[in-house]
């Protein structure tokens, strides 16, 4: 996973899978990269072919962290299969989903 900070946004990208095996690690990496002035995390899921319920849990954990500091988590360009899971679990109402392509 790549992390990149710009202005008040931390962008996470290069994520192939968000699953039970890696979600805790990715969450901790994201939190470690979270500087104080950042208010938004953009999770780029354009390369992500698989998200399970642990991966969804990780996204919600980050969301709660950001809400705590008055910010939010946005999902960028989810692949169709991931978009489908977000909708099935109604989390598309929790996260702002941004499609730029």
């Amino acid at each position: 996973m790549k992390t990149q900070s710009q202005a008040k946004t931390l962008t996470l990208s290069d994520i192939t899978e968000l699953n039970a095996a890696n979600s805790a690690t990715l969450r901790d990496e994201a939190r470690a990269a979270l500087q104080k002035d950042l208010t938004t995390i953009d999770v780029n899921l354009s390369q992500t072919r698989f998200v399970d319920s642990s991966g969804l849990g990780m996204l919600i954990a980050l969301h709660k962290t950001m809400v705590g500091r008055g910010g939010s988590v946005r999902i960028l360009n989810p692949t169709p299969s991931v978009q489908q899971i977000l909708e099935l679990t109604r989390l598309h109402r929790v996260f702002e989903i941004v499609k730029t392509t």
Partner: peptide
């Protein structure tokens, strides 16, 4: 059933059934 939206777990059986 789905858990509350801010719950970090509890979606596994829902996904399996669906």
């Amino acid at each position: 059933e789905l858990p509350p939206p801010d719950s970090e777990s509890g979606r596994g059986l829902f996904l399996i059934q669906n």
